[in-house]
Structures are given as structure tokens and as C-alpha cells.
Measured scan of single mutants.
Amino acid sequence: MAAGGDHGSPDSYRSPLASRYASPEMCFVFSDRYKFRTWRQLWLWLAEAEQTLGLPITDEQIQEMKSNLENIDFKMAAEEEKRLRHDVMAHVHTFGHCCPKAAGIIHLGATSCYVGDNTDLIILRNALDLLLPKLARVISRLADFAKERASLPTLGFTHFQPAQLTTVGKRCCLWIQDLCMDLQNLKRVRDDLRFRGVKGTTGTQASFLQLFEGDDHKVEQLDKMVTEKAGFKRAFIITGQTYTRKVDIEVLSVLASLGASVHKICTDIRLLANLKEMEEPFEKQQIGSSAMPYKRNPMRSERCCSLARHLMTLVMDPLQTASVQWFERTLDDSANRRICLAEAFLTADTILNTLQNISEGLVVYPKVIERRIRQELPFMATENIIMAMVKAGGSRQDCHEKIRVLSQQAASVVKQEGGDNDLIERIQVDAYFSPIHSQLDHLLDPSSFTGRASQQVQRFLEEEVYPLLKPYESVMKVKAELCL
């Protein structure tokens, strides 16, 4: 049975990233139509530049190519590739079939990587351009969430054990800070992308030097003109047959890092959902379990974690691919890159769409948070109580021993009897502590235990987050809708 299948058929496997999760716009960027249309555009740009620099290419040939950029006979191309065992030459023939007058000058002087690699770089750039505003929107939604809850005390956790208090907004800023680093890295790697350009079979530009009869300047002009037509500021000066596969490492490393950030955020949300302090959106008709109707599973956060793990592992592909590119190139890269580049971007696209949807509907339960604080705060307040007693004339050592005994009794009630923490009640009825009984409410005010959390939130948002989001103001209103 021949390899390949009808990918629109229910009898043929289709990647869930495309069929179930990723956005239509990201799927289109990695589609065959987008790819092969870009090949034709690159052939047109090459012909236009070659004509401008004096090669015998007519206006009629150029116009014929322009008129057929979208006229792609995919069936013919597939048949040609089956016959020739070469995808680029299959599309040269297919393009030439609908451009008979231009057929002889299509791909003039070029090698397969002229269309293959340059198209990949265009796709990487455009895919990054799709991700950047999506990530900015996630940051914006979380920034709104953090600002609104900047002063809401909550129990902090280290080692997932109760620690000092923080605020809900401050905790959210930990998430935002990681995503801001990801946004900066995505922008950097996007701006650092260079075009492969017009380089020939081993990167020496020998074929173009021959076409222009040894004119170095025209060869350099050709490279520059096509690079500018493709919208790049610069091209690699040095290439082998391909652009260095280190570029793929750079791009997928940034995406993998984004995956790590999203995994951490969504894990926190899942843990908070278990504590009943916070939940992701839950639709009115949504079913959490087929057997347990009360369940409210954090399905979206779980999906993000599941896909983020996949995204983090994909960076190993370009690392290994770059390491086995012998001399000017081997074909070890080809099949692998067809999979890992598309999957990385479709996965990143999915987790950003999902995280935006989550961040637009996060639900906080202040009463649950308050109750958990009441359970733990008495123990945390013991040092403040000791200091207040010393100020009232008591002995630190005597007070410490009193607190120690009462704390152990209260802990026994919590752990052995399943009761509430009654340390404060014990202190309130103990005559030894009568000098500070009137101060206990103040000493137990949760806001006095959150330090500068709310001020940190305000400063972080104003100095770091809002300036970073400013270039994306025009796209901030787009909502994230999930079908599944």
C-alpha cells in the first residue's frame, strides 16, 4: 500500500493539533497551500530580480507567473513527485505547466533550498508574528487579574506546605514575570531571523556568478533584492546548502521555554482548584465526569500541561538535527523538520489560546482563602504575639514557653481530632496574655502579614508589564474561544 493518505478522510490519521486544537490561522501558515504558494512567490521574486539585473526574462513571463501564483494543481504535483521522487522539481514542473512561456526560467540558477529553506524562514517569521500578540493578550488578562487582587491576602506555599502570606495578585505576578520573559525572547528570536537568500547549491553562489558572467556586484544585488522582497532586513552571508540548523534550535528553545512557563502556571491553577481557592472557567453544560456528576475538573489547565510537556520535548529534535548536518548538509534534517517545526508552533498556539481562555474567566473564592488563612495564621502570628507581650512588660522566655504549650495543644486538636485551630481562643482565655487581649485582632490582621506584596504588584505592572504590552494595544480586544 502506498504511503500517505487522504487526510480529510475519517479513515486516515490526522494530527489532533490540526484537527482538534490549533487555530485556523496557525494551521494555514503550515498548510501545503501556504507552503507551495510561497515557493511560487519566491520563484517570481527571483525572476523579477534577475530581470532587473539584466537576464533575458520578459515582462510577459513575469506576468504569467504572477497570474498563476494561486493556480496550484495539487493532484498534478503529487503525481509528479511520485514520478520524480523530488518535491521541488515536482512543483517546478507543475508551475511550468500553467506558465508555459515562463517554464524555462522558473528556478533559474537556484537549488531546492532556495524555495525550501527560504519558505521555512518566512513561515517561522509569520508563525512567530501570530504567537506574539496571543502571548501579549494572556499577559494582559493576567495583569488585569493581578491588579484587581493585588491586596487580597492568601496563604503562600513553599514545598506545598503553608508559608508566609502573600497576595493573590502577587502570586499571579510570578506567572506574568515568566511570560514577559517569554514574550521578550519570542520577539528577540523573531527579529534575529535572517533570510537564507540566493546562495546556490553549497552556499557559494557559483551558479549565479556564472549567470551574471562573473559580476560579483550583481550577485550581491540579486541576494539583497530577493531578501528585501521577502520582507527581511538581512540575509546570511555564510550558508551551506541550507541555512544553519542552529536557527531551528533557537526558535524551538524559546517555544519550549514558553511551554515550561505555561505548565507551571496551569499546575498552580490545578492545585488551587483542589484547594477550592480558584477555578478555571466551567461552562453551564460542561460535564466533569461521566460517573461523578459533582466533579469540576480543571480540564483546560490539564490540557495545557499535557501539550506543554510535548512542546518542551520537541527542542531535542533540532538539537540532534543540527549535530548531524555533515559538511554542507545531509538530508537527516528533512523529514524531522517537516514534523517538529509545525508541531512546535501548533502546540504553542494551542496552549496560548487555551491559557487566554482560562485567564479571561478565572474565578476566585475569597471566603475559602480566608478560612485557610484562619487555619494557619495563628501559628504564624506567634512571633508577633511574643513581641507584643514583651512590649507590655512580659518575659520573652516565659511567653515563648506559654505559646509553645498552647500551640501544641491547638495542633493536637487540628491533627488528632480534625478540629479547627483554636490557638487564639486559648490565648484569649489565658490570664497571662490579658495585657494584649485587646491587640489580638490587630495582630491577626492578614494584611499585616503580606509585606509589600501589593506595592510590588503595582510597581511591576507599571514599570515592566504595561510598557512591554504597549506595541500590542491594537490587538488586545480579541477574545479566545474554545470549541473543545
Rank of each mutant, 00 (worst) to 15 (best):
G5R: 11
Q325F: 09
L222S: 00
Q375W: 04
Q325M: 12
D333N: 01
K415A: 09
L468N: 15
M89S: 08
D144G: 14
F212G: 05
F157S: 07
M316F: 11
I386W: 03
L377T: 00
E213Q: 13
P133F: 13
G361W: 07
H310D: 02
E283D: 14
L135K: 07
G418W: 03
K66Q: 14
T321H: 00
E473F: 11
Q416C: 10
I373E: 00
Q428L: 15
T58Q: 10
M278Q: 04
Q285T: 13
L440A: 09
G200A: 14
T52P: 08
L132A: 12
L461W: 06
G231K: 10
E213M: 13
E48H: 05
Y13C: 13
P298C: 11
G5W: 13
L142C: 10
G8Y: 15
I269T: 08
A3N: 15
E250P: 13
V324R: 03
V88T: 09
L53T: 09
I385N: 04
A146W: 01
K35E: 07
R196M: 14
P10T: 15
G394V: 07
R426Q: 09
V368K: 05
V465M: 14
N68W: 07
F460M: 09
L461V: 14
I106R: 00
I339A: 08
Y34N: 06
K415F: 04
M312E: 04
E228V: 08
T450S: 05
N68V: 09
W326A: 05
L311H: 05
A392D: 08
P153C: 13
C399N: 06
D215V: 08
R372W: 04
T204D: 04
D422T: 12
G451V: 04
A2C: 15
I123R: 06
E376V: 05
K147C: 08
Q41K: 14
V324M: 09
S407Y: 02
R245N: 03
R83E: 11
S412A: 10
R20E: 00
S207V: 12
L46I: 06
D349C: 09
T158Y: 00
E64M: 08
V92T: 12
R137N: 12
V324D: 08
Q320V: 06
Y34K: 08
E250R: 10
T330G: 10
H91M: 11
A411L: 06
P24D: 14
G288S: 06
L468M: 13
I265V: 12
A348N: 05
A102I: 08
E81L: 02
Q177D: 09
Y21M: 03
L128K: 06
G394F: 10
D216Q: 10
Q184S: 12
D191L: 07
P162C: 09
D422H: 10
C483N: 15
Q408V: 08
Q458Y: 15
A431K: 12
E79G: 12
P293V: 01
E481I: 08
S19Q: 13
L132H: 15
A102V: 10
S289H: 01
A260E: 05
R196D: 06
T321P: 03
V138L: 13
L108W: 14
R194Y: 11
G197T: 01
A77L: 13
L482A: 13
I269R: 02
R125I: 05
I386K: 03
I424D: 07
S395P: 04
L44D: 04
G203T: 03
H91I: 03
A143N: 08
K187L: 07
L482Q: 13
F236V: 06
E360Y: 06
I123W: 03
P298T: 06
H310F: 06
R137C: 15
R83D: 14
A273R: 01
L469C: 15
S334M: 04
M312V: 07
I176V: 12
T242S: 07
L469M: 11
L255S: 06
N118K: 00
M26W: 00
D422V: 11
G240R: 00
A273K: 00
L130Q: 07
A410F: 04
A2K: 14
L377Q: 00
I139R: 02
S140C: 13
L124Y: 09
G8L: 15
F74Q: 10
L311S: 02
I427M: 11
M299I: 12
M380E: 11
Q41V: 07
V226M: 15
T204P: 00
L174H: 13
S454C: 12
H7W: 09
I287P: 01
N71C: 08
Q63W: 09
R188L: 07
F157D: 00
I238S: 05
Q416A: 09
I249N: 06
Q161V: 03
L222F: 09
I57G: 04
C305E: 01
S301E: 06
R190S: 09
N68F: 09
F379L: 05
Y21Q: 01
G203W: 00
D268T: 09
A392E: 14
L84F: 07
S140T: 13
W45N: 15
S438T: 15
L55A: 01
S23G: 11
D398H: 14
T354S: 15
D178F: 01
L423M: 13
P100S: 12
T119S: 13
A381C: 06
L341E: 09
V363A: 04
A431F: 06
P446G: 06
A110K: 03
H217G: 10
A22I: 11
M181I: 14
Q409S: 08
E25S: 14
L307E: 03
F460G: 02
N336K: 04
L444E: 02
G451W: 04
M65V: 12
A431R: 14
D87P: 01
F208C: 08
C27E: 11
E383V: 03
I424V: 15
F327S: 06
P10H: 15
S257R: 05
Q184G: 11
L468S: 14
R296F: 12
F449S: 03
P133M: 11
C305N: 07
P435Q: 12
A342V: 14
L461R: 02
D268Y: 02
D32M: 10
V405Y: 11
I105L: 10
Y294K: 01
I385M: 07
A78F: 09
H400I: 05
G418N: 02
